[in-house]
Design a protein around this nucleic acid. Sequence first.
DNA 1: ATAGGGCCTGTAGCAACTACAGGGTCAAGG
DNA 2: CCTTGACCCTGTAGTTGCTACAGGCCCTAT
Lengths: 134, 134
Amino acid sequence: MAFTIGDMGKATGTKIETIRYYEKIGLLPKPARTTSNYRDYGQAELGRLSFIRRARDLGFSLDQVRALLSISGDRRCDCAGIDKIAKEHLLEVDRKLADLAALRNELKAVIDSCDGGVVADCRIIEALGPVPPG
Amino acid sequence: MAFTIGDMGKATGTKIETIRYYEKIGLLPKPARTTSNYRDYGQAELGRLSFIRRARDLGFSLDQVRALLSISGDRRCDCAGIDKIAKEHLLEVDRKLADLAALRNELKAVIDSCDGGVVADCRIIEALGPVPPG
DNA sequence: ATAGGGCCTGTAGCAACTACAGGGTCAAGG
DNA sequence: CCTTGACCCTGTAGTTGCTACAGGCCCTAT
């Protein structure tokens, strides 16, 4: 029922420094302390940290996570705010996907144009931004 | 033939501060100065900056750009080193693409599971890292 | 002469951590 | 009892790739 910061880290795959960092920026509450001044966490904190980590894995920014947490903490508030954040984030992800796919093709083309000759003839160098001569 | 730092920025879509930053970290050489101490660039520098920017757009890190530049600066060196960096980078991009695609699906599923009810019933909250109860 | 733009240096800030330095604490083994 | 090693503490500085001032000089046009 009581966890050290190390337990929390192991349970959620988070480095100790990161947990302290979350505390410092107010994402995690200041926990109780043992007599020897060790942080003393309970289930609630573990749940909150899991939530944060999961959301971060899904690519939400800390600000977005903060928003999600504050909405989810308010039982009277409806789901729409959360849905909005998630949908905006989905749009972002789709944009990134498209960009990366385009980049991939270009990169592939650049690589394919190189047949292992000397640099003077290398198409990669050429492809990567030479000045129009003169 | 002679460019100010502002010209360089306009020509390559780079902010002035960024150009000075590249100079500071040694990606761009220290340019000549006018009598009034303004940076005075030529074609070569413009080419180098274009190269850097293009490579950055393609997602190469500054360290990778540095490597590409040093390889491409050596005419005796063959193309293989460049090809290697580019291919490694392509692998990275493919990894990111796969991750993002997976994330997208998950995010989509999370959003679809929410039908606009109250937070207490919201699947998004539930999906985002709840503690296994007990 | 003065207003506006552009340029200069240097420092501090952003995200989101990560990595020390320099200590205190605790459980196990000799 | 003492020591070893693993854990914890605080606080600060580093990372990447810029971006944003602050405070000041310069240059052109009116």
